[in-house]
Amino acid sequence: MREVIIRVLAAAVGTLGFGVLFNIRGKKLLVGALGGMFAWLLFELLGGVVANEPIRYFIVSAAASVYAEIFARLMKTPRTTFWIVNLIPLIPGGSLYYTMSSAVGSDFELFMQRGMHTLELAAALSLGIVTVAALSRIIKKNRTPQTK
């Protein structure tokens, strides 16, 4: 439990840091950082339910994208604002590092295995984003009458 809390808080601080680097300000910065925190919290909570890591990545990335969509509408800002920070804790940096360290260790089999894992995570992450993006476009098209 303590471990989970530490990780969730670390995710929030890290996300906040990226928010600053992208020059997000004021309330939007807070919402963005909380988004990153909730994304990771959801990931931890799903740990007991969904054992498959890529599938968990997919669910969390879709949820974080929905969060971004909703708050972008509420705060009247381009959704890029929240989209680019919410998913930061999900970037498979650790996985990428272990892949490259096994490349240095010249253990080809381990390298392939870890490399595939990293790719799987990245693919799951992007699939989540893309699914929500596609759905939101369909919804938007149906709601606003065609202006052309």
């Binding site: 940096g93 992007s126 993006a133």
Partner: peptide, 24 residues
């Protein structure tokens, strides 16, 4: 240490933007 520093250099945002543009 290296993982922590990788995170600030990783082009994660570029990649997500790329995918969104592709599928749009």
């Amino acid at each position: 240490i290296i993982i922590g520093n990788i995170m600030s250099l990783i082009p994660g945002v570029g990649f997500t933007n790329a995918l969104r543009d592709l599928f749009a």
